[in-house]
Each structure stands twice: as structure tokens, then as C-alpha cells.
């Protein structure tokens, strides 16, 4: 078929905004991600110092020990701007919704073996508090970090973690009762198994350097927790024991982590590639927080894996090291 449409054709004066063109060249249109990200944050001529932090400007790169010649060197491989982000999540929540529906409508929760159900509740429900901590930490990174390319994904990450906390809550309510949440909270507050992890999270709350916080939360903690809990434990071990329904209920987390990881890797890689000093700083931070996270997660892994926990964790740490090596950080 042939077509030859004539319409009113107008030659535009420019393809995109000058600040975007200074970065990508002015000879082509920019993507929505680029126009919605580059240079959005103010960098100059702030009027007043924050009363809550008079040592710094409102946005101030010196809040972090990481130094970048250009903070817009970071790029989210998912190219999330708000529209792309919500559309992606809307799709995922749709799947999640239909998974919850499926489990509920076919009474699969009731069909779970009792011990399995208990393990799942013991393991997953307290994790809602961990996700809540991640929500706070990413809010902090977004607020005190520098440059939209770095901070923007953090607000998405923050709200994702809130969403995950809410999904975990729903898992609890679906497999158990409101009391399940109270029990989990009690465990989180006082069971030995959880204290290492809670201390980790609370300690992260007082980390002031936004990039170090990024490392503590998004790189180290999530980097061990998700593969350990949602991949190794839920998808592999529990599903094999008849816990397919549980794997359905946590599909969101698995998929989400698979996607998010790419962004974390890209961020670490960019920062490490910038300078030897950054690389050294990152290696120090990552090693420190990884070791703390591993220690904190071991008793948690035991809830589901008992004696198998050490090996599983070791595996996960191993994979983590390999992954970060790829991102340019030798551990």
C-alpha cells in the first residue's frame, strides 16, 4: 500500500529546551525522560540557608562524600519519569491484584500446609517494617541528595517500598488475621531473630550522607534481602513445598526487584567509574553494610531454612559480590 499524506508542515525553531540540548545536542527531539529530568533541580543563587541545616545550601552536593563532576551522569535505565513509572506500576499492580484474587477466590490460602503457612507468616509479615524503613530512607535520599537524575528514582523507590509494605500486610491478612500483624510487630520488636535487622534499619535512619544511605538501603540491604527471601526462599524452597500460592502473592516483589536492580547497578557503576576516590569510598561502604546486612539476615533466613540458612546466605552474598564486581566495585 502507498500513502502520501500532506498536512500543514511547520518547521520548529528548536527541538528541545536549551539546557537539554546542551547535554544531548540540539539536532533532535529529546525523550520525555530527558526533558523531565535534566537540570530540574536548582543549583545556583539560593536565597536562604535552611533553618534546619544552616551549614548547607538547600540543595548541596557537599552533603555526600561522593563527588561527581556532573550529577546528571546518572541515568535510570528504566527511564522512569512519573508517567512511565505509574504506567509500569499500574500494570504490575494489576497482575498482583489478579494474583490476590486468584488465591482468594479459589481458597488457596486455606489449602496451604499449616507449617508452611506459619513459616510464611513468621518470615514475611515482619518484613513490612523493613519495607517501611526503606520508604523512609529513600525519602531522605530524595530530599537530601543532589541532582534530579539521582534523586528522582528515589521517590519512586520510596513509594514502591510503601507499596511492598502494603502488599506484605495483605499477605498477612490473607493468610491470617489482624492478629498476625500484631504478632509480627511483636516479633520485630523483641524476637531475637529480628533484632539484628531492626538495629540495622534504625542505624540507617541516622545516616546523614545520602549516598551512603543509598548504599546501606538500596545496595546492601535490598541486595541481600530480596534474593534471599523472595527468590531463594519463596520461589525456590517454599514453592516446591506446595507454596505456589505464596509465590503468586509475592510476584510483585520478585518482578520489582528484578527491575530495580538494574537501576541500582547503573547508579553504583556510574559513581564508581567517576573517580578512584568514589570507588574506594563505595567499596568501603558497601563492604561495611553488606557484612552488617548478612549478619542481620542470617537469623531471619533460619526461620524458613533452619540449618540450610548459612549456605543459602553464603550463596546470596556470593552472587551479590559478583553483581557488584560487574558494576565496578571489587569487594
Amino acid at each position: 500500500m502507498h500513502i502520501d499524506l500532506r498536512t500543514v508542515s511547520i518547521k520548529p525553531l528548536r527541538h528541545t529546551f536549551d539546557h537539554v540540548a546542551r547535554r544531548i545536542g540540539g539536532d533532535k527531539p529529546a525523550s520525555r525522560y530527558q526533558e523531565g529530568t535534566f537540570d530540574l533541580q536548582a543549583t545556583d543563587n539560593f536565597h536562604y540557608r535552611p533553618t534546619w541545616d544552616p551549614q548547607h545550601e538547600i540543595f548541596d552536593a557537599s552533603r555526600s562524600a561522593i563527588r561527581m563532576a556532573d550529577w546528571y551522569a546518572f541515568k535510570d535505565p528504566r527511564q522512569f519519569y512519573y508517567g512511565a513509572y505509574t504506567l509500569a506500576r499500574a500494570k504490575q499492580q494489576d497482575t498482583a491484584e489478579s494474583n490476590f484474587d486468584f488465591v482468594e477466590s479459589r481458597g488457596l490460602a486455606a489449602d496451604l500446609p499449616v507449617e508452611l503457612r506459619d513459616t510464611v507468616l513468621k518470615l514475611l509479615v515482619p518484613l513490612r517494617h523493613v519495607a517501611w524503613g526503606a520508604n523512609m530512607n529513600n525519602a531522605a535520599i530524595c530530599a537530601y541528595g543532589y541532582g534530579t537524575a539521582f534523586t528522582q528514582p528515589c521517590i519512586y523507590q520510596s513509594m514502591d517500598q510503601l507499596g511492598i509494605a502494603q502488599y506484605l500486610t495483605r499477605v498477612g491478612l490473607l493468610l491470617g488475621d489482624v492478629e498476625v500483624l500484631d504478632d509480627a510487630k511483636a516479633a520485630w520488636m523483641s524476637d531475637d531473630a529480628w533484632q539484628g535487622l531492626r538495629r540495622y534499619v534504625e542505624d540507617s535512619f541516622v545516616v546523614k550522607d545520602p549516598f551512603e544511605l543509598y548504599v546501606a538501603q538500596n545496595v546492601a540491604l535490598d541486595g541481600l534481602l530480596y534474593p534471599l527471601v523472595f527468590e531463594a526462599i519463596v520461589d525456590d524452597v517454599l514453592a516446591a513445598k506446595g507454596g505456589t500460592a505464596v509465590a503468586m502473592l509475592t510476584q510483585f516483589m520478585t518482578d520489582w526487584y528484578g527491575e530495580t536492580k538494574k537501576w541500582v547497578d547503573a547508579t553504583v557503576k556510574t559513581a564508581a567509574a567517576e573517580s578512584a576516590a568514589n570507588k574506594a569510598q563505595l567499596e568501603k561502604w558497601i563492604a561495611h553494610w553488606r557484612d552488617r546486612a548478612a549478619v542481620a539476615l542470617l537469623p531471619v533466613a533460619r526461620i524458613a531454612l533452619a540449618d540450610g540458612a548459612d549456605a543459602a546466605l553464603e550463596d546470596v552474598v556470593q552472587q551479590f559480590n559478583t553483581r557488584l564486581a560487574k558494576a565496578g566495585v571489587a569487594l
Binding site: T86, A90, Q93, M159, D160, L162, G163, Q166
Partner: peptide, 16 residues
């Protein structure tokens, strides 16, 4: 809740 937020906002974005 976040799931509802995503759903409705995505719909609004799509239209916009």
C-alpha cells in the same frame, strides 16, 4: 493505598 494510587494516576497520565 499505593496500588490504588498507581492505578488511578496511571489512568490519568495515559489520558493526559
Amino acid at each position: 493505598t499505593m496500588d490504588a494510587y498507581w492505578k488511578y494516576q496511571a489512568e490519568k497520565e495515559r489520558k493526559l
